[in-house]
């Protein structure tokens, strides 16, 4: 496979993942606004920060963290490289680039996803249309994922697609935790207040995990449980441990397939082992914030190393 093709697959799936993650953050934001009379600019600001586009937002809108401004920026703004519209456009451009590596089903699902979302997001979204548009985004990206799982060979093409997916997903979950880590700290004085419950629920909703958490923990929403769930639970498909394990697996398949190990393999295994070796208590003890920041840094460094080792760019 051409190095460029591997890079195109990696970025195509990072971008698809980002499309969904951004939509999920908007969904979480809208829910807080609906369920809480006091939802205000601070909540929207943390959504923008969690999406990793705080600087781009403030360059464009200053401190105007109003619901409609934020929603438009996250869904439609071409100046926001992570907006749903920009992300799906870049996913589709990469898909065109690597079309020879995709099954017809995956290409068509991606192309159709782009056509549908580009049309749905061509005009500002009215508040009452928002739920149906967020639903469309979820549905269209699910179709691409379904086509990937159902029709692609499990070879290096699939591995690069998966590595891109989980690097992006790990980064996204970690950024959400990084923005909200303080509400998960046990020392915060208003533990148990209703404000807290909303914050926790927002975190869980941002990763579509509020129901999963309830299945596992009943109604016992507590900060440590949530942190444990999102960082260490290997059943939870958006947890850091899950993402790190998947990346290490897929890189491992590549090493077997090619008969060649690279520095990225050691890095990925170190990350997986680090998450396996911790308990939530030891993380809290050493500092939750530092732990998450280290994860984000290592995850990014791993992405660059994969890019180098497999010659995406030269």
């Amino acid at each position: 496979m051409l190095g460029k093709t591997a890079g195109g697959l990696f970025w195509m799936f990072r971008r698809l993942e980002r499309t969904e993650n951004t939509a999920r953050l908007v969904d979480a934001g809208v829910r807080i606004a609906l369920t809480r009379s006091s939802a205000g600019p601070d909540d929207w600001k943390s959504i923008v920060t969690a999406a990793g586009v705080g600087d781009a937002f403030e360059t464009r809108h200053g401190q105007q963290y109003e619901a409609s401004t934020v929603v438009d920026f996250l869904l439609r703004d071409p100046a926001n490289p992570s907006s749903v519209r920009s992300s799906i456009e870049m996913a589709r451009t990469n898909a065109r680039l690597v079309r020879t590596a995709l099954t017809r089903e995956v290409w068509e699902a991606t192309n159709e996803c782009w056509m549908t979302l580009d049309k749905a997001l061509s005009d500002p979204v009215r508040e009452r249309d928002l739920p149906s548009i967020l639903g469309t985004i979820r549905q269209q990206s699910a179709l691409v994922r379904g086509a990937l799982h159902g029709t692609m060979l499990r070879n290096d093409i699939y591995d690069f697609a998966r590595i891109g997916t989980f690097l992006e997903r790990g980064d996204s979950t970690a950024r959400i935790l990084n923005v909200k880590y303080y509400v998960l700290l046990p020392s915060v004085s208003f533990v148990g207040s209703s404000l807290d419950n909303v914050q926790w629920e927002t975190i869980l909703r941002s990763v579509s995990a509020h129901r999963a958490y309830r299945w596992l923990n009943g109604a016992d929403f507590n900060p440590k449980g949530i942190a444990d769930f999102l960082i260490l639970d290997r059943r939870m498909p958006r947890s850091l441990a899950f993402c790190a394990a998947k990346i290490a697996d897929n890189l491992g398949y590549l090493a077997d397939d090619y008969g060649l190990r690279h520095p990225c393999h050691d890095m990925a295994e170190a990350m997986r082992n680090c998450l396996r070796g911790h308990t939530i208590d030891s993380i809290m003890e050493d500092g939750l914030h530092e732990f998450i920041e280290t994860f984000i840094r290592d995850n990014n460094a791993l992405g660059s190393e994969v890019e180098r080792n497999y010659r995406f760019n030269g």
Binding site: M1, L2, G3, K4, A6, Y258, Y310, R311, G314
Partner: peptide, 15 residues
């Protein structure tokens, strides 16, 4: 940009 000369032949950069 995927191609260059390696040992007197045109070669493509693969993974």
């Amino acid at each position: 940009h995927d191609l260059r000369i390696v040992d007197g032949r045109i070669a493509m950069r693969t993974t």
